[in-house]
C-alpha cells in the first residue's frame, strides 16, 4: 500500500529507509529546504500505511525559452519497496506538475551510464537518451547532482563516469525536440550543460 503526499520539512528526520541505501545521497539541510522553498510541489514522498517513508522524489523547474523543463534531481526507493512501481508513480506526479504548474517542454534526469537497471526503467517510462555528459560523475564523490540518485560509492583511483541526460517530452513539446535517435552518440562536457 502506498500513498503519495507532498514532502514536509519534518520528513527530513524520517528518510533513513531510503537514505541509508548506498546509492542515495544525503545532502545538507539547506539543499532539501531550498528545493522545498523554490519548488514545493515538485517534491513528494511515498508513504506506507504504517507511516514509513518508502521513497521520495525531488525536482526543480529550470532552463530558458524552449529549454524550460522539469528536472529530476533525485528519485529513490528504499530496498524493501522496490519492484512495486513506486518510482513510476512519483515520476508521474513530477511530470504532471511540470506540465500543469510549470508548463515545461520536457522532463529530464541524469543517470550513470553503468546503471542499466535504472536506464531500462526510465526507458519504460518514456524517457530516452538525449545526450551523453562526459565524466559527469566524479569518482569518490557524491552524485554531482544527477538524477536517479547520485552514488555514494566510489573509491580512490576509480575513473570518472559519464552520465546520460535522459528526456521525456511533455505535451508542450509538440515537435518532440527533446527526443533524438542518436542521443548516446551526442557527447557534451559537463560545463556545457550547466
Amino acid at each position: 500500500m502506498s500513498s503519495l503526499r507532498p514532502f514536509h520539512p519534518l520528513d527530513l528526520l524520517r528518510l533513513n529507509l531510503a537514505n541509508l541505501d548506498v546509492l542515495t545521497e544525503n545532502y545538507d539541510i539547506s539543499f532539501y529546504l531550498s528545493y522545498l522553498a523554490k519548488w514545493p510541489t515538485l517534491m513528494s514522498v511515498m508513504e506506507s500505511s504504517q507511516g514509513k517513508i518508502m521513497g521520495y522524489i525531488m525536482g526543480k523547474a529550470e532552463g530558458t525559452a524552449k529549454d524550460w523543463h522539469g528536472h529530476v534531481t533525485a528519485v529513490t526507493v528504499a530496498p524493501d519497496y522496490r519492484r512495486l512501481g513506486l518510482a513510476k508513480t512519483m515520476m508521474d506526479e513530477l511530470e504532471r506538475v511540470t506540465t500543469s504548474v510549470y508548463n515545461g517542454y520536457f522532463v529530464d534526469l541524469y543517470v550513470r551510464v553503468s546503471n542499466e537497471i535504472a536506464i531500462r526503467m526510465y526507458e519504460g517510462m518514456g524517457y530516452s537518451v538525449y545526450r551523453t555528459v562526459v565524466e559527469y560523475y566524479s569518482s569518490g564523490s557524491g552524485g554531482g547532482g544527477g538524477g536517479g540518485g547520485g552514488g555514494k560509492v566510489g573509491a580512490e583511483g576509480e575513473a570518472d563516469e559519464d552520465a546520460y541526460d535522459m528526456r521525456k517530452p511533455m505535451p508542450r513539446d509538440k515537435r518532440r525536440k527533446s527526443v533524438r535517435e542518436n542521443g548516446r552518440e551526442v557527447r557534451v562536457l559537463p560545463h556545457e550543460v550547466w
Binding site: S3, L4, K88, T89, E93, E95, R96, T99
Partner: peptide, 9 residues
Amino acid sequence: AATKGRGDD
C-alpha cells in the same frame, strides 16, 4: 494529465 497516477493512491 491532471489525475494521472492518482486514482491508484
